[in-house]
């Protein structure tokens, strides 16, 4: 698998703003069908890294290749599904039904002068049934619970039939029962549908068995090819403080 072109190939990435270095010298690769978790303390630069991968933020130095191409030559953005941090905190008065939102996932695929066709309808239906939100179809997004909104946001990302899902702490404000279902779902998407998953989370103990590799990010990145080993490492606890402490607790409970 590692002989194929990585989806993301990042070399020596540095991001500084207002004289402050947020990320320094990050190199990483994300391969097809991998399940990767990114952890690190708040303010460590996880969101910034992902935003650079998506071209929303310009690195100070370094190089990003996406499917082997530079940003300027890349035009298959529908292959990438992105659920930003706080995506489920929607403006309650925005006029959108669940269906309106999931259909957005098809928008960029459309050519000029073309309308939603049967293929789009099928993709939208599949995404909603996968996320188990078909019965919410006509509900206004502002009336849903946090867990339901989270599933809507991921259904929108899935509707474009992506190769890769990038999820930035999507579980903020979601109850524990919904979270469990959610982790099972991510595992299925990865194992059955072969969707690559990049998951920024604090709940690493729960998904340790599912993930292939773990990136810990606190200004610098440390890549770990054996997530379970990392979790028992005392140095990590020093480096990441409270966060890593919690990881240990999780680890012991599971």
């Amino acid at each position: 698998m590692k002989f194929s072109v990585p989806i993301f190939d990042v070399k020596n990435l540095t991001f500084s703003i207002k004289g402050q270095t947020i990320l320094s010298n990050i190199s990483l690769e994300v391969f097809c069908s991998e399940y990767i978790a990114i952890i690190g303390p708040n303010g460590g630069g996880k969101t910034t890294l992902v935003r650079m991968l998506l071209g929303l933020e310009t690195p100070t130095s370094g190089e990003i290749k996406i499917y082997g191409k530079k940003f300027s030559n890349f035009n298959e953005w529908h292959k990438i599904g992105y659920v930003p941090q706080r995506a489920s905190l929607v403006d309650a008065s925005f006029p959108a039904t669940v269906l309106d939102i999931v259909k957005m996932g098809r928008t960029a695929k459309k050519q000029l002068f073309s309308f939603y066709g049967t293929e789009d309808e099928k993709a939208v239906y599949d995404a909603m049934s996968k996320m188990d939100i078909l019965d919410l179809k006509e509900k206004m997004i502002g009336t849903l619970s946090g867990g339901q909104r989270q599933r809507v946001m991921i259904a929108r990302a899935l509707a474009s039939k992506p190769d890769i899902l990038i999820l930035d702490e999507p579980n903020t404000g979601v109850d524990v029962a919904s979270q469990k279902k959610f982790y099972t779902l991510l595992r299925k998407l990865n194992q059955e549908d072969k969707i690559t998953i990049v998951f920024i989370t604090h709940d690493i103990g729960v998904i340790a068995d599912d993930i292939a590799r773990l990136f810990t990010i606190n200004q610098k990145a440390i890549i770990c090819n054996n997530p379970k080993q990392l979790l028992s490492c005392e140095e990590m606890s020093e480096l990441y403080g409270m966060d890593a402490h919690l990881l240990h607790l999780h680890k012991h409970r599971h």
Binding site: H78, Y82, T107, A108
Partner: peptide
């Protein structure tokens, strides 16, 4: 009318619209 779907998406979330290729 031609761009209503795109304009709606942008109004909802400009950044996600951008990352999906709009």
């Amino acid at each position: 009318l031609l761009f209503s779907k795109e304009l709606y998406f942008i109004a909802y979330d400009e950044e996600v619209a951008k990352t999906s290729g709009i």
